[in-house]
């Protein structure tokens, strides 16, 4: 790639405007299921303020990392990634604010903290959607970037984590997560955990993660441990964090807590596994 083409994205006004438009489309498409989920509006005003603030704080490094690996435009130094991350947050926030206002979920006569809470919570998936828009809606000619991800094992784990966060977040706010775990026996939970890990491993092989090229050398066990088991561990941790953030685990017994984590771990694991497709 020649340098002028690389630089043009962030430094050319028209290009950046186009990237922003694409990001807005991505924000709406990816956040739409959550924008139209009742629990999300309610969580926006009743969930613990510190947990919500922490959740917003965590979003920025995730956006930064996603920008590094797959942002809505080409970036070449960390300042560029920071600009992209903040721009994605702005797009996600404004899109959420606009849609929630149109849906009459946010009204001006509500207290400010309630309004901010509802919009800020929605801006997490919306800004991640804005960041992913490039890969999904834009051109996909970034061979350099592919190589950069493939060369890094921590980068691969980060992508799995981001995928788990995004897909897990799409279902975590709903009552069904807890309801399903109430219905399941311990044996159902074990079966679901095995299924999650199995599917994750199948995806690792078919979608193509870093190290897959050398899978023949490393052998089944190495890939299984390094990617599938590690990925499932990340998915479970992120599930637990999401359940804690949405105050779904207060008062649960240890057994119920583990079951709920495994239930949410299923979509999270699929998110981790397909991160390479989404991101």
């Amino acid at each position: 790639m020649d340098i002028t083409r690389q630089r043009s994205f962030l430094h050319d006004e028209a290009q950046f405007a186009r990237a922003l438009a694409r990001a807005s489309a991505g924000a709406i498409i990816f956040a739409l299921p959550l924008l139209m989920t009742m629990e999300m509006w309610e969580l926006g005003f009743y969930m613990d303020r510190f947990r919500l603030a922490l959740f917003i704080l965590v979003t920025l490094p995730v956006l930064f990392g996603l920008s590094y690996f797959a942002g809505f435009e080409e970036t070449f130094c960390w300042q560029d990634d920071l600009i992209d991350a903040l721009s994605a947050f702005a797009v996600g926030f404004l899109m959420s604010a606009a849609l929630l206002t149109v849906f009459a979920i946010v009204r001006l006569d509500q207290p400010l903290p309630e309004i901010i809470g509802k919009i800020a919570l929605q801006s997490v998936p919306a800004s991640i959607g804005a960041m992913l828009a490039r890969k999904q809606l834009g051109q996909q000619d970034d061979a350099d970037r592919e190589r950069r991800i493939r060369s890094s094992y921590p980068g691969e784990l980060f992508l799995m984590g981001a995928g788990a966060l995004f897909v897990g977040f799409n279902v975590a706010p709903t009552e069904e997560m807890i309801l399903i775990s109430y219905k399941m026996s311990p044996w159902h939970a074990v079966a679901l955990a095995v299924l999650s890990l199995g599917l994750l491993h199948v995806f690792v092989y078919t979608v193509g993660f870093a190290g897959q090229e050398s899978a023949g050398d490393d052998g089944f066990l190495s890939v299984f441990l390094r990617f599938s088991v590690a990925g499932y561990g990340i998915a479970l941790l992120i599930s637990l964090y999401l359940l804690w953030t949405f105050e779904r685990i207060a008062g649960l017994s240890m057994m119920e807590l583990v079951t709920a984590t495994v239930v949410l771990g299923f979509p999270s694991a699929l998110g981790a596994a397909t991160a390479r497709l989404i991101v």
Partner: peptide
């Protein structure tokens, strides 16, 4: 960096 990028990231 383009002005638009500054504005959007500043707003963010």
């Amino acid at each position: 960096v383009s002005r638009l990028a500054w504005i959007s990231s500043g707003l963010g």
